[in-house]
């Protein structure tokens, strides 16, 4: 009897122990499942937040690179000053031609004095056109270099490998300079020669608007501006650039990429556009990833006041 009781107690103890072990196991399983679910949720959350962060950063970098390039374009108002010189040179040739014609008619003896002045004015127009092309090319080269340098500075800061995310170095997909649509030249119509003014309006060289609108010469005309009469062979080209309005100079700024148009050949660009791509992988337990794209654009500093 005594033996039986002892055996019963042992049985009871072992069954309690078994039950206790089983319950502990249940909690372990539930804990593991809970932990797994929370871990997956956290990885998804971190990946999502990481993608969002990286995408914003890429966009900021694209804007920053475009702005660095745009600022170089009109560095020290070189495009603005060149536009002003071209417009005035055109007037000088027109004026010299008028003087020459008048001298020839009224003072024929002085024709030999007037002719070199006209030739000089015409030569200066040719030289100025060459210099304008050189400045345009220089501005473009310097802007491209500035953008590439900025990109090189930025790209090394991207690569990172985290348990839930892997980010590569960004790649430069596209680098362009151009002009902002609807922006004309910075030069206001020069009003000293009535006939020339009428010709410019008739030819559509000037924005024919009523006051208080500024009557600006149009920027980047496909065939440039020409003079009436014998000097029709000379071409005067003005680049597109924001004009100073009431002594307010347009600051360089980031803008919407779709406003940037390609600059016509030979004209100085006034806006920059950059496209970046970045390969990103997220760690969701399997390989998942994609490529982020960002495009930034910026307009250069507007022209300063005419000295």
């Amino acid at each position: 009897m005594k033996t039986k009781t002892t055996s019963g107690n042992r049985q009871n103890h072992s069954s309690r122990a078994a039950s206790s072990r089983q319950r502990t196991g249940n909690i372990l399983v539930v804990t593991c499942v809970t932990f797994a679910v929370i871990s997956v949720a956290m990885i998804i959350g971190y990946s999502f937040a990481g993608l969002y962060f990286v995408n914003n950063r890429l966009q900021t970098s694209a804007d920053e690179i475009a702005l660095a390039g745009a600022k170089k374009l009109n560095d020290r108002d070189r495009i603005g000053q060149m536009n002003n010189m071209v417009a005035r040179c055109r007037q000088l040739v027109y004026s010299s031609r008028q003087d020459y014609e008048e001298t020839k008619k009224v003072f024929p003896d002085l024709e030999n004095f007037a002719e070199p002045l006209l030739t000089e004015a015409r030569d200066s127009a040719g030289l100025l056109e060459k210099e304008r092309q050189r400045v345009s090319s220089l501005a473009e080269t310097e802007a491209m270099t500035a953008m590439r340098q900025r990109f090189d500075d930025v790209k090394t800061t991207y690569a990172m490998t985290l348990p839930w995310m892997k980010v590569d170095e960004p790649q430069l997909r596209d680098l362009k300079v151009g002009r902002v649509d609807d922006v004309e030249s910075n030069v206001e119509e020069l009003k000293h020669f009535g006939d020339l003014d009428k010709n410019d309006v008739a030819q559509g060289y000037v924005l024919d608007l009523q006051a208080p609108a500024m009557r600006l010469y149009k920027g980047e005309l496909p065939d440039g501006m020409r003079l009436p009469g014998d000097d029709n062979d000379l071409v005067f080209k003005l680049s597109s650039l924001p004009a100073p309005v009431d002594n307010t100079i347009a600051p360089a700024r980031v803008m919407l990429p779709n406003r940037v148009e390609p600059a016509t050949a030979g004209n100085a660009p006034s806006a920059a556009r950059v496209s970046l791509r970045l390969k990103v992988e997220t760690g969701l337990g399997f390989s998942s990833g994609g490529v982020l794209h960002s495009t930034g654009a910026a307009s250069t500093t507007g022209a300063c006041l005419q000295q």
């Binding site: 004309e184 608007l209 208080p212 609108a213 500024m214 600006l216 924001p242 004009a243 309005v245 009431d246 307010t248 100079i249 347009a250 600051p251 700024r253 980031v254 803008m255 507007g302």
Partner: peptide, 11 residues
Amino acid sequence: WENLSKDPTSH
């Protein structure tokens, strides 16, 4: 806001 310039048409 980026564009802090003036409109040459309306001032």
